[in-house]
Simulated assay, not measured.
Amino acid sequence: MTTSGPDPLKDALALQARVRGLQALLELQLWQIELLNNRLYSHEPGGIAARRLLAIKRRESDRDGFKVPKGVNDP
Rank of each mutant, 00 (worst) to 15 (best):
S4V: 12
G5A: 06
D7H: 13
L9C: 01
K10A: 13
K10F: 04
K10M: 13
K10Y: 12
D11A: 05
L13G: 06
R20G: 01
R20W: 01
R20K: 11
G21M: 04
A24G: 09
A24K: 00
L25R: 03
E27W: 01
L28N: 06
Q29V: 01
Q29P: 08
L30C: 08
Q32V: 02
I33V: 13
I33N: 05
E34F: 05
L35P: 01
L35A: 05
L35M: 08
L35H: 08
L36I: 09
L36W: 08
N37Y: 06
R39C: 12
R39P: 03
L40F: 14
L40T: 12
S42Q: 07
E44R: 11
E44G: 11
P45M: 05
P45T: 06
G46R: 07
I48N: 03
A50W: 00
L53Y: 07
L54T: 11
L54V: 10
L54R: 12
L54Y: 10
R58A: 14
R58E: 14
R58I: 06
R59S: 13
R59T: 09
R59G: 07
R59N: 15
G65I: 03
F66C: 06
F66W: 10
K67H: 09
V68Q: 15
G71T: 12
N73W: 07
